[in-house]
Structure formats: C-alpha cells, structure tokens
Design a protein around this nucleic acid. Structure first.
Lengths: 109, 109
DNA sequence: CTATCATATGAATAGTTGTTCATATGAAAG
DNA sequence: CTTTCATATGAACAACTATTCATATGATAG
C-alpha cells in the first residue's frame, strides 16, 4: 500500500468525528435503507395508521410489520399511541421527512 | 388480521409513490448505512483523497476501500479523477453533505 | 519490454438482517 | 373469568453484504 501522504492523512484524521458518532450515523441510515421500512415511513407521512392498516396497505403479514415498526421506533423515527386494542403509529418528527425528501431529490436526478 | 379501515388504506395507497421509486430511495440510504462508507464520505467531505490515503486513514486494506468506493460511485455519491497512477476521489455533490448533516442532527438529540 | 506502483476485481467466507411461523401479551366485551 | 381482537415477540431460515486473499489491470519510469 501506497505512496507518501502522511501530512494529509493526519490533517484529515483530526477533522474526523469519533467512530462512535459515525457508527450511530450509519446505523440511522441503515434504518432508512430497507424498502419495507421506507414504504412504512412514506405511508405514515400521509397519515397516522394502525399496524393492521399498514399490513393491509403493503400486502404483508402483521408480524413482519410489527418487527419493522420496532426498529423504526428504536431509531426514534416513529412514535405511537394506544387507543383501546389498537396502536396508532406516526412519524416522530420532521427530520424524517427532510431526510427522505433530500434522498428523493438525489434519486430523481 | 385486523378491523375495518378499507377507506383509509385506499386513500393512503393512492398517495404512495411507485414501489420502484421507494426501492431506489431505500437503496440510496442503504449506501449511507455502513460505517466504512460513512467514514469515507466524511473524510472526503474534508478533502479530496486518493485510495491509499483513505486506506491509511481508516486503517483498512486497500482492497476493502476500493470495493466500497465502487459502491459509492455507482450511487453517484462520489466522483473521481485520475492523476498518473493515482486516483483521487471526492464527494459528488452537495446532497451528500446535506443528507449527512440532517442525519447528524437527528443522532445528536 | 520489463518492473513497479496504485487501483480494481473475483471468489470465498463470516456475519448480519428480513420474513415467516408459532405463540405470547394485553385490552375490551360478554 | 373467558373469549376475542390487535399487536408483539422469539426462534429458524434464507438472502444479502463486507472483508479478505489472490490476482488482474493500467499507467509510469527505467
């Protein structure tokens, strides 16, 4: 491996965030990086929905949706409220919309 | 599975983008969703770098970096130019920075 | 032309992840 | 209490992905 660029490497190294931060960042984007979760997020950006409505909408099993909602909730991308037996999910905040919109712009080029 | 909400499901279904678009979106974010690639992107946001400088910086093998750069380039997140035997990589455009910054804001809450 | 250097690529492997199936929880109704 | 309904969870399996090793490409210097 490689020619000499010790100075540059050291300079860039100092500007890099902690590995832990970069790991958290990657982990966040990994949550966006699945078609099912992306479809759930998009659906919730239209309207608060209960689990079985999402399952119907995406033509998937309730169990699969529940598993994905758990991941989305852990990442604080969605929040939920209970109403009787039903649990309604919604987007947690506006970052979610902004990140998706920026991604959309990149994809649509 | 579930109680009745046919009307709502149909209403949301009409507002959903094509599956192909959502797949592309998820695919884009999947590229951000790896620690190595995130570290490469962050490094390149500081400075244009050649492959072996990145390998040194991240303490990884040149081969591993090359493989990841290929993925980043296919997703049009980085671009490259040749100078003799050396190939320099840089961020492709400002979307990359904006998306990372938004993610960072979400993570830092 | 040959040797060397920087980068790229293919195959193999180990680790991770999404879905399914079966079952558990927890709330409301009778 | 028991049943029913909506959701959650655990284990198992299949599919995918990042890294490594070995090797190939492609450019420059001698």
């Amino acid at each position: 491996m490689g020619h000499n660029h010790e100075t540059i490497v050291k300079w860039v190294a100092r500007a890099m965030p902690d590995d832990e931060v970069l790991y958290d960042l990657a982990e966040l984007f990994r949550v966006f990086g699945d078609t099912t979760r992306m479809r759930i997020l998009y659906a919730l950006s239209e309207k608060e929905l209960c689990v079985c409505a999402i399952a119907e909408l995406l033509h998937m099993q309730q169990s699969a949706i529940s598993h994905q909602l758990r991941i989305l909730k852990q990442a604080k991308l969605v929040a939920s409220r209970r109403e009787g037996k039903t649990i309604f999910y919604r987007l947690a905040d506006d970052h979610v919309r902004i990140i998706i919109d920026q991604g959309m712009e990149h994809v649509e080029e």
